[in-house]
């Protein structure tokens, strides 16, 4: 196992150039899963960015929140400003692993690891976050919702490092983060959804429902167009159009789709006047 320990962004990008295939690590929380038996991982080269002090920050300005690549979930949970301006991020951060993970795991790592189950990514994407990728030759900033290409495939090339994440501070009129896991804490998401609305602009971002964390165009259209919704079932077509969840060791595709429909319906019905409340009755979801 080979570990590279740069102390500046410049050194880091140079080392990434020199060591093709080096894996960037910050909190290492994703790397340590099944570490003893994951023998191939032991032979790899790692670029440990945890000593790059210029990445260890987050800052609120008038228009945006900037998260440095070493900003942890806990940094956000712990910041009263975040609770005031980006509560969605706080809500999502609190559902990640347990406190030990929250204090080590980083938002940038959550993006880079490209797990379809990433809770932090869903919340960031719902807030229109942008990602800054830096290489030895320069930086580019791209919208997070264009970052993922396919399962575990991203637009971050081998010589690029995520240096920061930019979240515009447009306070949504409605925002909600719902995580459905197999238990109340320390759970990997089975169905996750981050919802944010500004004016007639809905953002519906789901995790664990597709090979990547993604925005749901059909569901967003359903809401933006204020199409009448009478019951969870009315989301079914849009869910089918947007998503193709799988049966896996944690849940089933049919459970995931049904729960997403129910969660969307019950989250949105109280704040969407064009929803009819027929679905909320004594027999609840059976409608």
């Amino acid at each position: 196992m080979n570990i590279l320990s740069p102390s500046t962004i410049q050194q880091a990008t140079r080392l990434l150039n020199e060591h093709d295939g080096a894996i960037v690590m910050a909190g290492a929380t994703d790397l340590l899963v099944n570490w003893p038996s994951n023998l191939n991982a032991h032979e790899r080269t790692y670029l440990d960015i945890s000593s790059i002090s210029e990445l260890a920050f987050h800052s609120f300005s008038e228009n945006e929140l900037v998260l440095g690549a070493l900003c942890t979930y806990w940094d956000i949970i712990d910041d009263p400003c975040a609770m005031q301006h980006t509560k969605l991020l706080v809500d999502a951060a609190r559902t990640v692993g347990a406190v030990q993970i929250q204090t080590r795991g980083t938002w940038a790592g959550n993006i880079a690891n490209a797990s379809p189950a990433a809770d932090g990514v869903a919340a960031l994407m719902a807030l229109d976050a942008q990602v800054t990728l830096t290489s030895a030759t320069g930086s580019q900033t791209i919208p997070l919702d264009t970052f993922y290409l396919d399962y575990k495939k991203t637009r971050c090339s081998h010589d690029q490092l995520i240096t920061d994440i930019r979240v515009p501070l447009v306070r949504p009129e409605f925002a909600s983060f719902v995580k459905v896991g197999a238990r109340c804490a320390q759970a990997i998401t089975k169905v996750g959804v981050a919802i944010a609305q500004t004016d007639a602009n809905w953002r519906i971002v789901v995790n664990s429902m597709a090979p990547v964390v993604k925005r749901c165009a059909a569901i967003e259209h359903l809401l933006n167009s204020q199409t009448p919704v009478h019951s969870p079932r009315d989301f079914a077509q849009a869910i089918e159009a947007d998503l193709a969840p799988v049966d896996d060791i944690r849940s089933t595709a049919s459970y995931r789709k049904a729960v997403l429909a129910r969660v969307l319906y019950h989250e949105l019905a109280p704040c969407c006047p064009w929803f009819s409340k027929n679905g909320i009755s004594k027999n609840g979801i059976n409608q």
């Binding site: 969870p232 979801i285 059976n286």
Partner: peptide, 15 residues
Amino acid sequence: LTPERIMSLTTPIHA
């Protein structure tokens, strides 16, 4: 009684 099992006991799953 996992959630998946309870769902199958309560109603035919609709998408």
